[in-house]
Amino acid sequence: MNAVTPSPKLHDCRDAFVAVLERLGADNPKIVAVCNDSVGSSKLGGFKAKWPERLVNVGIAEQALVGVGAGLANGGLLPFVCGAACFLTGRSLEQIKADIAYSNANVKLIGISSGMAYGELGPTHHSIEDFAWTRVLPNLPVVAPCDSIETAAAVEWAASYDGPVFLRLSRVGVPDLLPEGHKFELGKANLLRDGDAITLIANGTVTHRMVKAAAILAEQGIEARVLNMATVRPIDVEAVVAAARETGAILTAEEHSTFGGLGSAIAEVVVAEAPVPMKILGVPGIFAPTGSAEFLLDEFGMSPAGIAEAAIDLIARKSSRT
């Protein structure tokens, strides 16, 4: 296959989210947006202008945010509950567990500005624990789209899916990778480039960095497979096992702690089904120093060059085993 080429233009995926929400909202009066004073940061201004009564703002009160969302769903509405991912998941985790996941409420949780999108604001505002916190909850799919096209497709899918969803979005600009018209399938990874030396797996804001790292590797004659794995739960077991068996090494990268996130979910499969050398890139179990998301991703070894270097080290480990 031909490798995907990142678009030159960068997109804030929140724009794709609200564009789809407003399009669906025009046809479906049951769609309501729920927020915690986050009209601006969730980009819900357009939705509010169109349907002010359908924008339910509970104020700075995240426990009520999620509980009210569950109640709105019980009353027959289709709530998109929006808030900064750090507060939505951290402050309201027990509401997400009891009111949403355990109650199986048809609520879409939209975590805005996840990862280190609030970079310089510091670790209080970073949401690098949310995969770990949410992916252990039954009934709750966890999805982090890689570009504006996948974001739009995932929002459309979430609206039609009968059950809770956690959609993890960023505000950091990313290039488009997936083709126009892409359909989102829960639990299915997307092959962005094929190769047999190693598999690089990422999601969210890091996927395009993996694509660029694969291009660097290709210049050195190393053909890496690249998978975009937006769905952290349920993990795409088939794609992970195939990657392990066919390429013999897996490098993951995510805008999240190295503990409990995408890499961990993949490692759980690899260990049980097809053990091969693995490395997990992410925030290495520390509170991040001051810096933008882009700076911090580079700092933690997730620049394209840093990823390529980690891939070469991992391929060497693979060779040393044989």
Binding site: R54, Q63, G67, V68, G71, L72, E94
Partner: peptide, 23 residues
């Protein structure tokens, strides 16, 4: 709705009542 941890029912009930107002 599932309850057990305390302080969960009233926020959910507010959502239920708000839904009735909206619909």
């Amino acid at each position: 709705t599932n309850t057990g941890p305390l302080g969960h029912g009233l926020p959910v009930a507010v959502g239920m009542a708000k839904a009735a107002k909206l619909t």
